[in-house]
Amino acid sequence: MTRTTIPASRSTGVVVGPVRATWLSVESHWLWYRRNWRSSAFSTFLGPVLFLLAMGFGFGSQVRPGAATGGLSYVEHLVPALLVTTAIQNANFDSTYAVFSAFKWSKTYWGAVATPLTPGQVFAGQLTWNALRLGASLAVFLAVAGLLGALTGPAVLWAWVFALLAGTAFSAVVVAWTATRRTDSAFNGLFRFVVMPMTLFTGAFFPMSDLPSWTWPLAWITPAWHGIELSRGAAFGTLGPVALLGHVAYLSALVVVGAVLGRRYFTRRLAV
């Protein structure tokens, strides 16, 4: 038997495939961004550059090149790692408040799932959008670092790839987690107890060997540490094949776990 639908339809709506549906969701983020980019331009683009100037050049001027900086100037040594911590800090807002708002304040997700889009596609669109924004902001950061003469060579471009991977891994997990939040009260805690320590204590600004060894395992589970190892290793040619595979596998696993959970939590929240 064929499906019993009501034949005479005047509706123009159709169901699009999952990839196109995800892109339509990305498209709507882009439209929103084109109108509202000013609200985040400073924190996304200029902020990281100021950080580079202050910590890389300002603070770096007080640091003599040595073993801790791989024999490089402090700022050259810092750039690949700063790219990773920037990725994570930028991903933080887009994965918490922006997502929470679409559930609770602006409720735009609820509007989207009343259309042929599914909650899973809305999630995929959000994550893809976050990754695209990260890619753009990191490219700008890298270009500025290049203009300031803080890059060691073309290999630093790999840092862009790995920073993007680390940022996306973090974003996938956090977006999924945000979908389970009923209030925004935990986001401050996430920033203070996860993002800040992840920025400061995973080897970006000073070697982890300066920290007590019991803190190391905590760093090893963070996407920041894996991202920094990858991005410095690739930029300075010190990355072995095993380490490369291991770090990439860990970050990819985080992306997958975040994607699976995100899909599930978005569906649980939006289809009740």
């Binding site: 603070f59 007080q62 640091v63 900086t69 402090y74 203070r192 800040m196 600004f205 300066d210 920290l211």
Partner: peptide, 18 residues
């Protein structure tokens, strides 16, 4: 905790560099 974390990282980490 936020400034204290900063302080710790600066004390133990950055302090080793400078």
């Amino acid at each position: 905790f936020e400034p204290v974390l900063f302080l710790l990282s600066l004390g133990v980490g950055f302090g080793q560099l400078v």
